[in-house]
Simulated assay, not measured.
Amino acid sequence: MTSSSTSSSIRPSALPSVLVTGASSGIGAVYADRFARRGHDLVLVARDVARMETLAARLRQAHQVQVEVLQADLTQHNDVAAVEARLRDDARIGVLINNAGMAQTGGFVQQSAQSVEQLIALNVTAVTRLAAAIAPRLAAAGGGSIINIGSVVGLAPELGMTVYGATKAFVLFLSQGLTVELASKGVYVQAVLPAATRTEIWERVGIDVNTLPEVMGVDELVDAALVGYDRRELVTIPPLSVAERWPALDGARQGLISDLRQAHAAERYRPQA
Rank of each mutant, 00 (worst) to 15 (best):
Q118A: 15
L234I: 13
V49A: 15
R37D: 11
G217R: 05
P157T: 12
P247G: 10
A121R: 14
A243R: 12
R253K: 09
M52S: 08
V222Y: 08
I120N: 12
G142V: 07
L226V: 07
E214C: 00
T6Q: 12
S241W: 03
S145Y: 07
Y31T: 04
D230Q: 14
Q64H: 13
L130I: 09
E181D: 15
L182N: 05
Q176N: 10
E244K: 08
R34A: 09
F35P: 06
Q190H: 05
S13Y: 03
V205W: 03
G101I: 07
S3N: 08
A81H: 13
Q110M: 14
S17C: 07
P12W: 00
R270L: 14
G94Q: 02
S17T: 12
L155R: 09
I120T: 09
A196D: 12
V163Q: 03
A132P: 04
K185Y: 01
Q71M: 11
L155N: 10
L159N: 06
F108M: 12
F35D: 04
L96S: 13
V222I: 08
A166Q: 03
L174P: 01
A14Q: 13
A265D: 05
T54K: 15
L256A: 14
A252C: 02
A121Q: 15
Q272L: 14
E203M: 01
G107H: 13
A195C: 01
V43N: 01
G144I: 05
L70E: 08
V43W: 04
A196G: 00
T197R: 08
V127M: 15
W246H: 06
T236D: 12
I27L: 15
R51Y: 01
A113G: 10
T211M: 11
A225M: 07
Y188F: 12
I257L: 15
